[in-house]
Design a protein around this nucleic acid. Structure first.
Lengths: 112, 112
DNA sequence: TACTAATATCAGATAATGTGCATATTAGAA
DNA sequence: TTCTAATATGCACATTATCTGATATTAGTA
């Protein structure tokens, strides 16, 4: 069995973490995730929320989807997105708590 | 008195969060922060740890410094860096915890 | 079948980031 | 002062992200 160099393991972990962080390191995606943390939402709803063009929203969702952060459910033409990764959820929560300590308005007022 | 639109406030919050996340969303910087989460370290030590060129490390530290994630203390020519932001610390902790819990389950679960 | 709504994808322009190398700065030692 | 160690900075180049606008796909409806 191959035992991994501790620094290689650290690197591998850091790589995975950085990938997840990159998914979240964007204002629009954070806003979407904020909404999704309260339950699933359709693309249209996220378009209205963010004020972005539909194609931009779709592309952001594509990034999140390919990164495994969200998953989709289809109902007729409408697609409902939801958060699908626990690491994403816990980073987001940590973020909200840390943010809430400075002002009362973190992106998580409406709970599920 | 201007009352802020909730969406504007959300946007402002998300912007700040995204800025912090961008600081962390890099493998090398995460490795450095991992080391710094155990206490302050000199640039040289971080060079050895990461295996990067000194200038690269210095630039990464510059990014973290300007973003307010770390602070420096000088002792002669040596500069000791340390984590200087609570949000950074709590995101990093959440990350570490989530990473440790990650191994428990299979492909994916359908949460609600 | 033609039409519309909802969403995805592609292509191109632009902006933001990261990387490597050379060089500048700064503090102490000889 | 001159040398060296430790660190920072500037610049050029490659890579990546994000937006826009056009078009494709897919499901339901008239």
């Amino acid at each position: 069995m191959k035992h991994t160099d501790p620094i290689d393991e650290l690197r591998a972990n850091a790589d995975r973490m950085a990938a997840v962080l990159r998914l979240l390191a964007n204002r629009e995606r954070l806003i979407m995730l904020c909404r999704l943390s309260a339950g699933e939402a359709s693309v249209n709803e996220l378009v209205d929320l963010t004020g972005l063009a539909q194609s931009a929203v779709s592309q952001h969702l594509g990034v999140l989807r390919e990164g495994g952060a969200v998953a989709v459910r289809a109902d007729a033409q409408t697609r409902y997105y939801r958060i699908a990764d626990d690491m994403v959820r816990s980073i987001f929560n940590a973020l909200c708590e840390a943010c809430g300590e400075q002002s009362s308005t973190g992106p998580h007022n409406t709970a599920a």
